[in-house]
Every structure is written in structure tokens, then in C-alpha cells.
Simulated assay, not measured.
Amino acid sequence: MGLDNFSGVRSYQPGDPIRHLAWRQIARVDPALGGNLLTKQFEGGAVAELGLDFSQLPHQLDVELRLSRMAAWVLEAERRALPYSFRIAQHYYPPANGDAHQAACLRALALYGQEAFT
């Protein structure tokens, strides 16, 4: 990861790396209501770390929608072979990718809210 400064966001353009997507801003807008994808821009081309954090999703969204978004992001990061960190409740998985990481993250999502999970 580079040390260059974040300079803002812009509309997503095909070919933008998934690791540059502005996840927090995207999560705040429902695509069904006309929202669109946004890409982070950095001075000097630094790469942003991909971190998926359930607590950063807007709380006004229902739990099932937040869980669904997290699952979609895990699958997309894996599809693109991008390392990502994952956090939900007290569970944190450091940046990685691959079958075991994906399975652990999806299991945490599936068990969210169950007594054995918390």
C-alpha cells in the first residue's frame, strides 16, 4: 500500500480496481434508488486497503441487507483475487483471500445474531 494522500471520490468507471471502490460511500446509497458505485482517488496512485467492516454499514439499513452486502463484497473480492480484511461483531480476520478466508467470513455472516456466534 502506498503512502499517498486520499484526494476524493469519483463515479466508478469500468476497469477501476475493486480495491479502490469507496465502500463506505457506496453503502450509504441504495443502488435501487439511483445510487452508483464510487471510486477512491489518491494523489500519486496509492492503493487503498480493502477492509469489509459490518459496523461501517449504515445502521438505518436492516440487518439482512447489511449481511447481504457483506456477503456480496466477500464474493466479489474473492472473484477478483483481492486480499481483504473482514470484521463483524467481535470477529476480525486480517487481510487474506482464498477458500479458507472466504469460508470463515461467510460462516461469520451466516451465524451473525445467533447466541453461539456472539
Score class of each variant (00 low, 15 high):
A27D: 11
R19G: 01
A71D: 07
R80D: 02
H59P: 06
A108C: 15
R69V: 04
G35I: 05
E76R: 10
R10L: 01
L50C: 12
L106Y: 08
L67T: 03
E76K: 14
L67M: 03
I26C: 12
A46Y: 05
L111P: 00
Q41H: 02
L21W: 15
F117L: 00
P31L: 03
H91R: 15
V9Q: 10
F54L: 13
N36C: 06
L65I: 13
E115K: 11
P58K: 15
A104W: 07
P58Q: 14
H101A: 08
L57I: 10
R19T: 04
G2D: 07
R10V: 02
Y112N: 05
D62L: 13
A103I: 00
L82R: 09
V29W: 04
A89D: 13
P31I: 05
L67H: 02
P94V: 11
L75N: 11
F86W: 09
T39S: 12
T39V: 11
D53K: 15
A110V: 04
A110W: 07
A108M: 13
L57M: 13
W23A: 03
Q13D: 00
G113P: 04
F54P: 11
A71S: 13
V63Q: 14
L52D: 07
M70N: 00
R28N: 12
D99N: 10
R24E: 10
L65T: 14
C105D: 03
T39F: 08
Q90W: 11
F54V: 10
R80E: 12
H101S: 04
R87M: 11
F54R: 11
P58V: 13
S68H: 10
N5E: 04
I18H: 02
A116V: 06
S85R: 15
L82Q: 09
E76V: 06
Y112R: 07
F42M: 12
P14Y: 09
G51H: 15
E43K: 12
D30T: 02
V47D: 06
A22Q: 01
P94F: 12
G51S: 15
R80V: 07
Y92F: 14
R80K: 08
Y93Q: 11
V47E: 11
L52H: 13
A72Q: 10
L111M: 12
A32F: 05
L52V: 11
A48V: 04
Y84K: 02
A46H: 04
R107F: 00
P95C: 06
A81P: 00
G15L: 09
D16G: 03
L3E: 04
E64I: 07
A116I: 02
E76F: 13
A103P: 00
Q114N: 07
L38P: 02
P31N: 09
Q13R: 15
D62N: 15
E115G: 00
D16W: 10
A46E: 05
D99V: 09
N97I: 06
